[in-house]
């Protein structure tokens, strides 16, 4: 992404000017990319002008940026609908299982690259389990925590590969209406994180009920120690609320991060230009789109998987302890 990081020094001299001898290769490439970007803006302004040219679908409101997140039912098998969300969930499962089983089949005393990565993932999830849960619960829930991590990670990562899955906004080639390419992730639909969060919520509530010998002990365990008198009902209310908010925070954190990330990439990668009808705006924002794409794919995908799984471990661990 040198195109974005380099502009500052290139501001003063004209980008087209022959470069000084002794300039590093990276700098040369950066300056060239920057020059192409600047020339592109000039080109689009020269060809299309500043006057906006909105597409008819945009003017009529048929095209909206959220359309690409709609789950268009592709086909149904009885009561079971099949749409792109399902496709992505299945893809995530297949890729997860394929990678993990392939790694396990080739396990060696001297590990290769894939095995090192898998072992790192294993040690990471094992570490977070061990830190938050006692031995018994750790043994019981480590597979769940590890699966959550790898499943969400793969779901997030395949969400950055453009695939022809946008059946709502099609494009036409030689008369054929084909689904547009888009980057979609199953967890941009609230159903995905909500289901996983519900699963985790049920499990840690169940563990809490077991550990505190029934609902009364469990409710008592929610209260922090040392609260007396009139404060009790208020604090109790807050604690119960915060307990249920875990479900929402687990869901929304993953969902909103992924949805917002994908929307930002789409907006900066050209959608904003389409909406305002200015071609040069698309070109102008493209570097930002690429930067956000890399940021999301490299950092957010793994970070959100990590946060979801470590919170699962923390909630399970705190369920069996009292305040």
């Amino acid at each position: 992404m040198s195109a974005i990081s380099v502009p500052a020094p290139a501001g003063a001299p004209a980008p087209g000017k022959p470069q000084k001898a002794g300039m590093s290769k990276g700098k040369k490439i950066g300056l060239s990319v920057f020059a192409v970007w600047l020339l592109g803006i000039v080109f689009f302004v020269a060809v299309f002008g500043f006057k906006s040219h909105k597409a008819p679908d945009v003017l009529s409101g048929v095209f909206t940026p959220t359309n690409e997140f709609k789950l268009d039912t592709w086909f149904s098998l009885g009561p079971v609908d099949f749409n792109k969300g399902v496709l992505y969930v299945l893809l995530a499962a297949v890729i997860t299982l394929w990678v993990m089983i392939a790694a396990v089949k080739r396990l060696r005393e001297r590990p290769g690259r894939l095995q090192v990565a898998v072992e790192m993932f294993y040690n990471l999830t094992f570490g977070m389990t061990k830190e938050n849960l006692d031995d018994r619960l750790g043994r019981k829930y480590f597979p769940l925590i590890a699966t959550l991590f790898v499943f969400i990670l793969v779901t997030n990562l395949i969400g950055y590969i453009p695939l022809p899955v946008n059946s709502v906004d099609k494009f036409t080639i030689f008369g054929a209406h084909l689904p547009s390419f888009q980057i979609y992730a199953a967890d941009t639909n609230v159903a995905f994180p909500l289901m996983l969060a519900l699963l985790v919520f049920c499990l840690f509530t169940w563990e809490g009920l077991k550990a505190h010998h029934g609902p009364i002990g469990f409710l008592k365990s929610l209260m922090p120690g040392g609260v007396k008198g009139a404060m009790v009902p208020m604090i109790f209310g807050i604690e119960v609320l915060s307990y249920f908010l875990r479900l929402i925070s687990l869901t929304v954190r993953l969902w909103a991060n992924l949805l917002a990330g994908h929307m930002l990439i789409a907006f900066m990668g050209g959608e904003l230009g389409v909406l305002v009808g200015d071609q040069w705006v698309q070109w102008l924002l493209l570097p930002i789109g690429i930067a956000i794409f890399l940021f999301e794919a490299v950092l957010i995908a793994a970070l959100q998987a990590f946060i979801f799984s470590i919170l699962t471990a923390i909630y399970l661990g705190s369920a069996v302890q009292s305040h």
Binding site: L71, V80, D81, N83, G85, V86, V89, L90, A186, N189, V190, A191, F192, L194, M195, L196, L199
Partner: peptide
């Protein structure tokens, strides 16, 4: 939430 997708996910 799309209930069908939730069941698929589960």
């Amino acid at each position: 939430p799309n209930v069908g997708l939730m069941i698929w996910v589960l």
